[in-house]
């Protein structure tokens, strides 16, 4: 029950709710626990609530780190 996934915010709804999309499935989630969310943001959704907003720059940086490490690993004999 703890699995939480990043979902794309597609529309802001009244009462601090939002429409989000996750792998083609649309859902309504609450934005009561986050601030300044706009359509186009990705939020981490857990039991129907957005818990945080994904920072695209940090995400790109993490992926870049993985790649660099892969290249480093290629240099060491396995």
């Amino acid at each position: 029950m703890c699995l939480a996934l990043p979902a794309l915010v597609t529309e802001l709804l009244p009462d601090d709710n939002a429409r989000v999309e996750l792998g083609g499935v649309a859902k309504t989630v609450s934005l009561a626990l986050v601030s300044d969310v706009k359509p186009g943001d990705y939020v981490i959704v857990h039991v129907g609530y957005a818990l945080s907003v994904i920072d695209p720059e940090e995400a790109a940086r993490t992926l870049e780190l993985f790649r660099e490490m892969g290249e480093l690993a290629e240099d060491v004999p396995a």
Binding site: L5, P6, L8, L22, G23, Y42, I54, A59, L63, F66, R67, M69, G70, E71, L72, A73, E74, V76, A78
Partner: peptide, 23 residues
């Protein structure tokens, strides 16, 4: 799916595994 698929890449997982083994 964005922020999911790219964090499941099998080849990258293998290369991180090699880095762990080396270290």
């Amino acid at each position: 799916m964005k922020y999911i698929d790219e964090f499941r890449d099998g080849e990258v997982a293998q290369s991180i595994a090699r880095a762990i083994k080396a270290e």
